[in-house]
Amino acid sequence: MSVKSLNKPANWSSADPHFRPNRRRRAIMDPLFRWVCFFATFLGVVFLGTVLGAVFLRVLYPAGAGAKSGIPLGERFSDACALLRRLVVNKPGIEASEVGYRVGLVGSAWLLLFVILIAVPVGVGAALYLEEYTGKSRWKTLVQTNIANLAGVPSIVYGLLGLTLFQRGLGFKSLALGPCVLAGSLTLSLLILPVIVIATQEALRAVPQSLRLAALALGATRWQMIRDHLLPTAAPGILTGTILGVSRAIGETAPLLMVGAAASLLKVTRGPLDRYTALPVEIFYNAKEPDESFSTVAAGGILLLLCLLLTMNFFAIWIRQRTSKRPGLAGSMRTKRGG
C-alpha cells in the first residue's frame, strides 16, 4: 500500500472490510479524556488550596473583638506569629485573646505515644502472622477481607466501640478505664490497625522469596529469618505505612468525642490514666463558639494541626524516597532483572 493511500481515510473503509478505525471519534475522545483527568486533578488541588488559603487568611486577618484594621502586611505577619506562639503555650480560658492549645497538644502527644506503642506491635505482628505463618486458607481469606473492610468503617463507629469496650469496660467496673488517655489511645489504635496491617503486609510481600529461602536453608528458624532479614528489609515500607496511619489517628476527632476527650480541660495531662483532650477536639469546640473572635483561634489550631500532620507525612515520603535509592535494594533489583 502506498503512503498516499494511507492519507485517505475515506478509502479505508471501502478497502478494508475487517476494520472501522473511526479516526474522527478517536481523535475527539483521546484529548477529551485527557482534559477530564486534568480537571479531576485540578479540582482536588483547588479545594486544598482554598482550605489552606481560608485558614491562612483567617489567621492573618483576625475577626471579632480586638481585630485591627488598616495595618501593614508585615505587622500582620508578626501578629500571626505571636498568635501561634500564644496558641501553643496557653491553656484554654474564657477570653478568645488568651486561650491556647497547650492541653490539647500535650494530650495529642500522649495519644501519639500510646497509639505507637499499641498499634505498631499489634499491627506488625498480625501482618507477620498472616504473611509468614499462615498458608493460603479460607480462614486467611476471611480475616484478610475483614481487615480490608475494617479500614473502611467510619471512625465514629470505632468511637462507639471504644466507649463500650474501654471506657465502660462492657459494664464491668473493674475493666472500665474511664475517660482517660489510655481509652482514647486504644480506640485510635483500633482505628488505624487495619492501615498498619495492610501496609506491613504490602512491605512483606515486596521482600523477595529468595531471601526467605536463603535464610531457612541455612537452618534458621522462622523467627530468626523474620528478625534478621524480613523486618530490616521491609522496615521502610512498614515505617511509611505506620507514620501515615498514626498521622491519621492524630487528626481524628469523632472517635475521641465518644471516648471522653474533654471539651475544655484546664489541667495538663500527666499520665495514661489522666483525663485528656486532643488538639482536633479543642479546635472543634473553638470553632463551635458563637463569639466570632474564636474562629481565629480555631484557624490557628488548624494551622498547628496541619503543620504537625504535614511534617509527619513529609517524613514518611522522605523515608520512602531515601530507601528506594539505597544501593542494597537497587542491587537486588538488578539481580532480579538479570536472572
Binding site: L211, L213, A217, G219, H229, S332
Partner: peptide, 15 residues
C-alpha cells in the same frame, strides 16, 4: 537444613 545445605538457581546473597 543445617546438615543438608542448599544453593539456589539464582544467586541470593543476603543484602
Amino acid at each position: 537444613r543445617r546438615r543438608i545445605g542448599m544453593v539456589f538457581q539464582k544467586p541470593n546473597p543476603f543484602p
